[in-house]
Design a protein around this nucleic acid. Structure first.
Length: 648
RNA sequence: GCCGGUAUAGCUCAGCUGGUAGAGCACCUGAUUUGUAAUCAGGGGGUCGGGGGUUCGAAUCCCUCUGCCGGCACCA
């Protein structure tokens, strides 16, 4: 029999018979490893203990102590155990796929009746029974025709379709636990009892299209989470509760920031507190843009369809546009208009007024552009995904030679802004040419190279998002990670030679001839609505003082302090702070509690002592204790902290 | 848009199998002058999301529309 050489993580190599399984390898090392082994890595691929190894390879045996392997196997096995449980309870349910995802898995089923929350409990119970049986997991490699006819006989059309989609040279693996069987890529544990019985939970059921295609049947997807121990599961569930507490919709109400209502779905009614955040952020962005050489413009909301036809939006994006038909009785001529879904065509109109020279480029044209897009109803989500929003939009008109430098400058500005707003963890995704595109390969080569070297020059690496660019040009996306580890795509930069062409933007070059500028579409925050939602959730409502809508509340302990309280508020306001007085006839405990829940960053308590000393007792949000300081000192400290970071 | 769920007082929620609505907090009034996360007492407040139907009778059952929630699809 042929010999192969397996190299272990410590660098030692040993000879084995070809076709040896990782289980046998583990057994040859030690009895205890043999018992503890759950899977292996063979040349970096996650490998079942039962699969034979045919050639020389690097091998590592995994135990439950190897988190990545353990979670993968536990969650994957649970997906199958759940599918088995479902089919044991409802034999006519058809199975499809069940992959591992973050923290757990899901499995999609085809069943006429909807799964109810009570059903989830039933399934969970059945799963525990299956785990208790400790059924051995068996695997076989089947020939394609056998597998197809097997599934056809059993009335499992989805599995047949899956088999047909698997490349011809890949082995078809069949898995069994007990009598139940599924097609699966593997690897798996050795028996169902290896899955921790109390460290998983079925979370929800939701619709999902077969193969992610909205023209295909809607299946029912059951989501589960799973860990190695109950303790980890409980920690995860607690984390979800904590995340729910920072939901911007909840905090938006608790902090009285905004509301939304049925008559204006997907649009925000900003309350004074929320509007304070909005305006403060906008003022900040305006200063940053001026500092970086942008000019600010403003363009119309309701624009005749002719312009949208010229820009290409009418043809491609009409479904997402609010169409406004002007009534004949009220208008001189009947016309079809649309609310602007984007600012770029308007900016080209501004650009096109008067001749532009190469000396005018780069021209950085910014607008806090109020846009309306008819988003599908199911896409709406609080103030994060809306139909009416304002972008921190700008278009940089430039020559091809200027793309690199402008991109670098943009990245640097964006980095400074994210840092000011408390986001230090973010990354760049680079989307290059898609299959469907316009323009020559040579020009794509040049423009993509410009974006790459701009990232390098700014000192940032990027991850490639192959083929995800716009049809007209490549793009950079800036993804930030919030305090609880969620990713948000906010900033973007897209290179566009197409729109200047369609809307006939030109400049006179050094040679006296007309040339076509490029446009860089770019945004830092994306939209104010969404970004404020992110800020609220990232900070759990505890915004930094400069952004906090209510900065200071001056609360009296006794009514004798009322006059002094008004004096303190006046002093704070004179220093530019947003300060309120609370002289209600309530105990200080009550006031502290209420303003703390309202996320007011600074509470000043005033009693007889403070009046006497002309001092204040300062309690910062989140602190257990307070500090006594003079009125003047307090005003100075708070005013300094409330200064926006770019003005410090 | 699709699948499922859901809609009761400002908020959070109760209201079993149909018999014309209830709690806590909030709000208002009064008392209390209070030292850092809820002082006490009293009071007002809802055509039960809209429309239609079944029924002697509908918050409750059915249909339909709308919003919201969780996903999926979408996100130029």
């Amino acid at each position: 029999m042929a010999q192969i050489s397996l190299t272990f993580p410590d660098g030692n190599a040993r000879a084995f018979d070809a076709g040896v399984t990782p289980a046998e390898v583990a057994a040859s090392i030690s009895k205890s490893l043999s018992k503890k082994a759950i899977s292996a890595s063979v040349d970096g691929r996650h490998h079942d203990l039962q699969w034979p190894i045919e050639g020389d390879a690097q091998i590592a045996i995994h135990t439950m102590d190897d988190d990545a392997a353990a979670y993968e196997l536990i969650r994957h096995d649970l997906a199958h155990i759940m599918a088995r449980a479902v089919q044991e309870i409802w034999p006519d349910v058809k199975v499809t796929i069940g992959p591992v995802i973050n923290n757990g898995w899901y499995y999609d089923f085809d069943r006429v009746e909807p799964f109810t929350p009570e059903d989830l409990g039933r399934i969970e119970k059945k799963m525990k029974e299956i785990i208790a049986k400790k059924d051995t997991v068996r695997t076989e490699v089947w020939e394609r025709p056998k597998a197809v006819s097997y599934y056809e006989e059993r009335g499992e059309p989805y599995k047949v379709e899956l088999i047909e989609a698997i490349p011809g040279d890949e082995p078809l693996r069949m898995y069994w636990h007990g009598d139940w069987q599924d097609l699966c890529r593997g690897p798996h544990l050795q028996h169902t009892g290896q899955v921790p019985q109390d460290a998983f939970k079925l979370m929800s059921v939701a619709g999902a299209y077969w193969r992610g295609d909205s023209s295909r049947p809607m299946l029912q997807r059951i989501y589960g989470v799973a860990f190695k121990t109950k303790k980890e599961l409980d920690a995860h569930l607690t984390m979800l509760e904590e995340a729910a507490k920072r939901d911007h919709r909840r905090l938006g109400r608790e902090m009285d920031l905004f509301h939304m209502q049925e008559e204006a779905p997907g649009q925000v009614f900003w309350h004074p507190n929320g509007w304070n955040i909005y305006v403060t952020l906008q003022d900040y962005m305006r200063r940053r843009q001026r500092e970086n050489g942008y000019v600010e413009v403003n363009t119309p909301q309701v624009v005749d369809r002719k312009l949208w036809e010229a820009s290409g939006h009418w043809e491609k994006y009409q479904d997402h546009m609010f169409i406004v038909e002007v009534d004949e009785d009220h208008a001189r001529e009947k016309s079809m208009n649309a609310l602007k879904p984007m600012n770029c065509p308007g900016h080209v109109q501004v650009y096109n007024q008067g001749l532009k020279s190469y000396r005018d480029l780069p021209l950085r044209m910014a607008e806090f552009g109020s846009c309306n897009r008819y988003e599908p109803s199911g896409a709406l989500h609080g103030i994060m995904r809306v139909r009416g929003f304002t972008q921190d939009d700008a278009h940089i008109f430039c020559t091809e030679a200027q793309i690199e430098d402008e991109t670098r400058r943009f990245i640097e500005m964006l980095a400074a802004i994210y840092a000011d707003l408390g986001f230090t963890s973010w990354r760049i995704k680079f989307s290059d040419r898609p299959d469907q595109r316009i323009g020559s390969d040579e020009s794509w080569d040049r423009v993509e190279a410009a974006l790459r070297s701009a990232c390098e020059a700014a000192g940032y690496s990027f991850e490639l998002n192959p083929g995800e660019g716009a049809f007209y040009g490549p793009k950079l996306e800036f993804v930030l990670t919030d305090a609880i580890g969620r990713d948000w795509q906010c900033g973007t930069l897209q290179v566009d030679p197409n729109l200047p062409e369609r809307l006939d933007a030109t400049y006179i070059g050094q040679d006296g001839a007309k040339h076509r500028p490029y446009m860089l579409h770019r945004a830092v925050l994306g939209s104010f609505e969404r970004f404020i939602g992110i800020l609220i959730e990232d900070s759990a409502g505890r915004l930094p003082l400069w952004l906090a809508p209510r900065q200071v509340v001056v609360a009296t302990i006794v009514s004798e302090a009322d006059a002094y309280a008004h004096e303190v508020v006046a002093a704070l306001r004179k220093a530019g702070l947003r300060a309120e007085v609370d002289t209600r006839n309530e105990k200080i405990n009550y006031k502290v509690r209420e303003h703390s829940l309202g996320k007011v960053p600074a509470i000043l308590a005033l009693g007889a002592r403070e009046v006497e000393e002309r001092s204040v007792s300062l309690r910062r949000l989140g602190d257990k204790h307070q500090k006594s300081l003079s009125l003047q000192e307090c005003v100075e400290v708070l005013a300094a902290e409330a200064t926006p970071p770019d003005l410090r």
